[in-house]
């Protein structure tokens, strides 16, 4: 029951944050110089002032800002994120079309980085001082300092251009017209490089965190007690150390959700991955405000959800946590 109250409280807080983000996004993006009508005018070859005014009126750009905000919020509640100026289609459907690709990329990168990071980190902690530890710690330090986009470029150079193992861009090979299982394999083949590149940084983070936190926990009193009782070391590691050492990893995974989504802008741009990150950058260059607003809102909601999930998972993992609002 306490847990339900706790979750309800987190949901309300999350909703308020989303509302605040909606309002702020609206103002930031709308106050920018360069409205979408001038972009259309710039690329159409010729456009007269009357026609531009007509378009502005049509898009509601001639209304006072506060009216535009009110209309925006009203529509938002009905799931209407507006119309893309550039594509003339509903923003929600433009984003939803791209969302699966991004979810596939981020979730697989998150999973692979948590698993490999925790495994590597605990390996380094258990073999502290050996060359395993040195190797893992050095690699983690290195990847922690490497820009995503650069390692992406180098991966393309090595694995796509020189070795030819993986495709250099995109998510599918449309010219092959694959269906069924071949289609899935084709997507996975395209996924390997961007997923690994996006995951590497976080793998490094998790490895470092796991190692540090396991070393810290292993010197705590309850572990000493367990050792004194003569329990086997493997059992202690699994039952006591790892479980407690995972807490900071979980916290961090929640905090990192936003970073991970931000990282997709770079990775999707480098790998031509047809997701929301690339859409965000394209929309920015085209001043397609409503799409940008939508992406902000949806990625922020994703972060809020990720944080709530983290908090909830935390209550299950940590026996000591107080469950209260």
């Amino acid at each position: 029951m306490d847990r339900l109250n706790f979750i309800a409280g987190r949901l309300v807080k999350g909703a308020l944050i989303v509302l605040a983000i909606a309002i702020m996004n609206f103002f930031i993006v709308r106050l920018a110089p360069g409205d979408p009508v001038s972009v259309l005018a710039g690329q159409s070859g010729a456009m007269d002032q009357d026609y531009m005014d007509e378009l502005r009126q049509r898009f509601g750009l001639d209304q006072p800002l506060i009216v535009q905000l009110w209309i925006y919020l009203q529509n938002l509640f009905q799931g209407d994120l507006g119309t893309s100026y550039r594509q003339g289609r509903a923003v929600l459907s433009v984003i939803l079309e791209r969302l699966p690709a991004t979810l596939l990329l981020t979730i697989s990168a998150a999973i692979i980085s948590v698993i490999l990071g925790v495994v590597a980190g605990s390996l380094a902690a258990r073999r502290r001082g050996t060359w395993w530890d040195t190797l893992i710690s050095s690699l983690a330090l290195l990847f922690y300092a490497t820009p995503l986009f650069w390692i992406g470029l180098m991966a393309i150079l090595l694995f796509s251009l020189v070795l030819g193992w993986f495709p250099a861009f995109g998510m599918v090979s449309p010219e092959k017209e694959y269906t069924g299982i071949m289609h899935i394999l084709d997507v996975l083949h395209h996924l390997v490089l961007p997923m690994t590149v996006l995951g590497l940084f976080y793998m490094a983070v998790y490895a470092r965190l796991t190692r540090a936190s396991m070393l810290e926990v292993s010197e705590m009193d309850f572990v000493r007690t367990a050792r004194a009782k003569g329990l086997p070391e493997g059992y202690i590691t699994r039952r006591h150390i790892l479980r407690n050492a995972l807490l900071p990893v979980i916290t961090f995974a929640g905090i990192q959700a936003g970073h991970l989504i931000g990282g997709t802008v770079l990775v999707e741009t480098v790998f031509g991955w047809p997701g929301v990150g690339r859409l965000a950058f394209d929309s920015l260059l085209q001043r397609d405000y409503s799409v940008l607003l939508g992406i902000f809102l949806i990625t922020s909601i994703m972060v809020v959800i990720a944080n709530i999930i983290t908090d909830v998972v935390y209550t299950f993992v940590d026996p000591r946590i107080e469950v209260k609002q």
């Binding site: 110089p33 360069g34 005018a41 001043r287």
Partner: peptide, 12 residues
């Protein structure tokens, strides 16, 4: 240095 939108606006 701006994006296409900013360029068009500034020019206009």
């Amino acid at each position: 240095q701006t994006d296409v939108g900013g360029w068009a606006q500034t020019l206009g």
